[in-house]
Design a protein around this nucleic acid. Structure first.
Lengths: 248, 248
DNA sequence: AAGTGGTCTAGACCACTGG
DNA sequence: CAGTGGTCTAGACCACTTA
């Protein structure tokens, strides 16, 4: 028994079919966790070719409504597509939007296991060798923009000299030179007052409001690549982002 | 003259073809702005069917390397896919991660054109009628999390009573009730000290560090839907985000 | 008018999943 | 083992761009 597809204003068949299926899913006919009819069945039901069915299912899969498993079938994973917004960054460097010449100028470096206090602040387990670089970020000779602490997993960390020369980000160097690309970044942004210890190298007043960012970089397997902690005195930095609605 | 495709470890042909084309583009053979061979030509060159060619081109288009225009051809728009990171939000509500019951409690409302000072602060043009709601956000009866000012374009703003009842976000109401979905959000995050005027309703100390977020909501046509400005006392709020590397 | 990419059909074989 | 989705072929017509 074949069903006619709404052909609203000359939309392609696969779109009309996708819309029909979306409506059925929204109505809960194949509820979440249940299987959609097979491709073959959909071909017969709607009187279209398999290619057309697959194009329709591709749309639904892109929208996150269904998941497909060879040999097993097509399962409904969401009843309706929510409006998704994404922030798109060109790369890790865009995370904090420093001027290109605002390099990290190391003040101290040290190797060793992660301090208990540092591990707790980042919410990660202690242990493991890390290479710690503390420094300021800014154009050489000018008032610095930020005070930064970076902890890099020791087995993949660049040599000290490299970090000093390095214009770009440490994680991009690790991706290209060590073959360990960053797969996930977790970032926390908060506000807090500058401590005396922080104020001095930044040439700022203690107690002044500051933006704090803490980031964890992970590889594909969930192992930590690096941790970073930055403090930006209030008026010197704004974090701007643009979020676009995703195509549905 | 047909070219053999690398068939590394049983990868599908369309992937092998996509890889071959990606390599050519990376090498600058069809440079940015130039046209790729037509689908028909690629079929002959690589000895595959048109469907296979189209699957390969679809991959490259998804990676942002090429753009396709019916009747005109396939143009190269980027030489290599950069590592992109995206922050995925479930919806507008996820932008600021308030607890679900942290509603906006209006203290003042007013209608009229945008103040010159407000327009300057947001970096938008003056003029146009807006509905202004000022209030605090938090669980009723508890210390508020934030002080918020929202400016909603008057012609699509909800009635006052609705805003008070409304649990969710104003922009989602506008999307569903007025048919004007948000297409783009611009957000700025900075740190600054609390003013006396801000400290009082927040039950905080003047001069305390605070996180300030300013957002502009735009519709598809680039018209402003709403503007919002929030101040979060330092220790009461952290903005967390997770960025995932995009599939290439 | 010729050529492009977009849609669509009717087949086929395969890798994988499940009973 | 039967049935699933994944890949692939060889055709066809269409809407659109460009000249």
């Amino acid at each position: 028994m074949t069903v006619m597809l709404e052909n609203a204003s000359g939309a392609p068949r696969y779109m009309a079919l996708a819309e029909a299926l979306r409506a059925r899913i929204a109505g809960g006919d194949p509820a979440i966790g249940e299987l959609l009819p097979t491709e073959h069945a959909l071909c017969e039901t709607y009187g279209v070719s398999r290619h057309t069915v697959r194009e329709a299912l591709r749309l639904l899969a892109e929208a996150g409504l269904i998941a497909r498993r060879r040999g097993a079938g097509t399962v409904v994973v969401a009843a309706e597509a929510r409006a998704h917004f994404t922030q798109r960054l060109g790369g890790v460097d865009d995370l904090m939007q420093y001027a290109r010449d605002a390099k990290l100028q190391p003040r101290h470096t040290r190797s060793g296991p992660l301090d208990a206090a540092v591990a707790r602040a980042f919410g990660v387990a202690t242990g493991g060798e890390f290479f710690h670089v503390a420094g300021v970020r800014g154009r050489p000779g000018e008032t610095p923009i930020a005070l930064t602490d970076v902890y890099i997993r020791a087995d993949i960390a660049p040599p000290v000299e490299t970090i000093v020369e390095m214009g770009g980000s440490v994680t991009e160097w690790i991706a290209s030179e060590r073959g360990v690309p960053t797969a996930r970044i977790e970032q926390s942004i908060s506000a807090g007052a500058l401590t005396e210890r922080e104020a001095e190298p930044l040439d700022a007043e203690p107690g002044e409001a500051a933006l704090r960012t803490r980031r964890r970089y992970y590889d594909k397997g969930g192992r930590i690549i690096a941790l970073s902690d930055s403090v930006h005195p209030g008026e010197r930095f704004t974090y701007d982002m643009v979020l676009m609605r995703e195509a549905e």
